[in-house]
Simulated assay, not measured.
Amino acid sequence: MKKITVLSQLALCASLSFIGFAAQAQDLKGSAQAANAKVWLCVGCHSIPDYRADYPLVYRVPMLGGQSAAYIASALAAYKKGERKHPTMRAVAGSLSDQDMADLGEYYAVQTASSPNNPLK
């Protein structure tokens, strides 16, 4: 009987922590305006049409303008966690908070492919 109670309590704790995490993620709102002070991390590579990085392999650097905010934020989070492997992007993403990632996502979502890095007024 005691074993079932412990397992039930563990399951309840796990459920509550997941709910708390989901609620926190939903509360995080990005600001394109706030990203103006952060976008300098990105423009060195992502603002150059047809740019290719050559470390560790030749890699075509994508233009980010017009991508969805959620995609940008989730890609940055994946680099930060090591789920995506490019070393430069991992280092950049490692310096970002969740709020920074949400802000950068919103910033690029309002851009277009032809003007991906113009600071917002």
Rank of each mutant, 00 (worst) to 15 (best):
M1L: 09
T5E: 06
T5A: 12
V6A: 14
L7F: 09
S8P: 00
Q9P: 00
L10I: 11
L10F: 11
L16Q: 10
F18K: 12
F18R: 09
I19S: 11
A22M: 15
A23M: 13
Q24I: 05
Q24T: 01
Q24N: 12
A25G: 06
A25M: 10
D27S: 15
K29G: 01
G30L: 10
A32L: 06
Q33W: 01
Q33E: 11
Q33T: 05
K38N: 09
V39F: 08
W40R: 02
W40T: 07
L41F: 06
L41D: 00
C42M: 04
C42H: 10
V43I: 11
I48N: 04
P49Q: 12
P49L: 01
P49A: 02
P49S: 08
D50S: 12
A53H: 04
Y55L: 09
Y55C: 00
L57T: 10
V58P: 00
Y59T: 15
Y59V: 14
R60K: 12
V61M: 05
V61P: 01
M63F: 03
G65Q: 07
G66A: 03
Q67P: 02
Q67K: 14
A69K: 12
A70L: 14
A73N: 01
S74D: 08
A75P: 01
A75I: 10
A77I: 01
H86D: 14
P87M: 09
P87D: 13
T88I: 12
M89W: 09
R90K: 15
A91L: 12
L96I: 08
S97N: 06
S97Q: 07
D98K: 04
M101R: 11
A102W: 07
A102F: 10
D103C: 05
L104Q: 03
E106Q: 14
A109C: 12
V110C: 07
V110I: 11
V110D: 07
Q111A: 05
A113I: 13
P116F: 04
P116Y: 04
L120F: 08
